[in-house]
Design a protein around this nucleic acid. Structure first.
Lengths: 217, 217
DNA sequence: ACGATATGAATGAATG
DNA sequence: CATTCATTCATATCGT
């Protein structure tokens, strides 16, 4: 991403830094600042190789590899993937959180709609089918190539994919959430702010859904 | 702060907006510039309704509703609340914090029209070990008014210094990842994108695991 | 025109 | 995996 440039500076210091400030050396901010090369590789792995939640071993390898381009730790890699995936999902949720739509087995590309993503580098976008969502399990997709290193194994068909569907369907059913309470200023029922906080957790009326405005676009 | 005197009515442009972009049609002016109506509604939600971190569904509704007043996307709403909350807290940290004594009661600058202000306090100074008295005492503003919705999460009352330790080493033995071949795009064999991600259900011991991620190269 | 400030956007790090 | 917090960058806007 980074439509505009910025960062790109890494201290090769072998440690120390951190909170050991006290002097004008205010630049070794505790936080990891990925170099452009590191980001490039990470994205390559993410988009071109479908890496989403690397295992501990993979993380070690990745971080070791990326270390050539700057200081980095395993947790950085871990967080990077976590965040990248989470944000991609979140983005989708804000815009079209209609229905999970498990749908077909990757019949037609994943189409990662770039709605509010400034596009990443826009360089390596060659391979269209990458196991994007969680539901891959694609049996015979000929796309095995990209991830087909020669480490011997895989068919990519056993990708597990854990149980991601926890929030499936909201069923905007009846609008029984009496909003009649009356807000002080306006009726913000459309927002979904519950007028009363229930103490009973098992009812879980979290999803309010009483919108009548609904959105379009 | 907060120049609330602008009547800019959303530039619906699609080509050279105010910015002096000389080439071709530019996407709007990069960043979203909320209209006064949008800001008014957002603040209403924030202050009068206690909305702080709207959920995805709420964000959708809010953005849909605000779209009447100008171009807006879900992320804009998301960021707006994020920022607004963060900045309010940040400013508060400078003024009232740093001394439990007097300190001018947040008179700082937040001169906006607030009619509730549910949150105050919330000091979770993330210090490794800080003795934190359980001073639970719902203080100011008990005016429940009429909107008593459960706004997400507020109350940091309990310390929740939970530290679930579930040791479980990952034993990053020497994997037999023979690197070497050649893949079509890049050679990512070193990553070991093996599909047998199996089901390690120990994916959650954070600290411990994160440490393990780090390797010595 | 600048410089300061307000604020949108992005993202690393954590926590639940 | 979702959510949240803190920081930081970038830019719009205003003041002088």
């Amino acid at each position: 991403m980074e439509p505009q440039n910025q960062q790109q500076q890494q201290n090769e210091d072998g440690g120390g830094s951190g909170k050991g400030n006290g002097f004008l050396c205010r630049q070794s901010s505790t936080r990891w600042t990925p170099t452009t090369d590191q980001i490039r590789i990470l994205k390559d792995l993410y988009y071109n190789n479908g890496v989403r939640s690397p295992s501990a071993e993979q993380i070690q390898r990745i971080s070791a590899r990326l270390r050539q381009y700057g200081k980095i730790e395993g947790k950085n890699v871990f967080y990077w993937f976590q965040n990248h995936k989470a944000r991609e999902r979140q983005k989708k949720r804000f815009t079209s959180d209609s229905s999970p739509a498990v749908s077909m087995q990757r019949g037609g590309g994943v189409a990662v709609s770039n709605v509010w993503k400034p596009d990443h580098e826009a360089f390596h976008n060659k391979f269209p089918n990458i196991s994007h969502g969680v539901c891959s399990a694609s049996p015979s997709s000929a796309s095995t190539l990209t991830v087909g290193q020669n480490m011997g194994n895989y068919g990519y068909g056993s990708v597990t994919m854990e149980k991601n569907f926890r929030d499936c369907s909201i069923s905007a059913g009846g609008s029984s959430t009496g909003v009649g309470g009356g807000s002080l200023s306006h009726n913000f029922g459309w927002v979904g702010v519950e007028p009363y906080s229930s103490t009973y957790s098992f009812i879980d009326k979290r999803k309010v859904l009483l919108d009548e405005y609904d959105d379009e676009e």
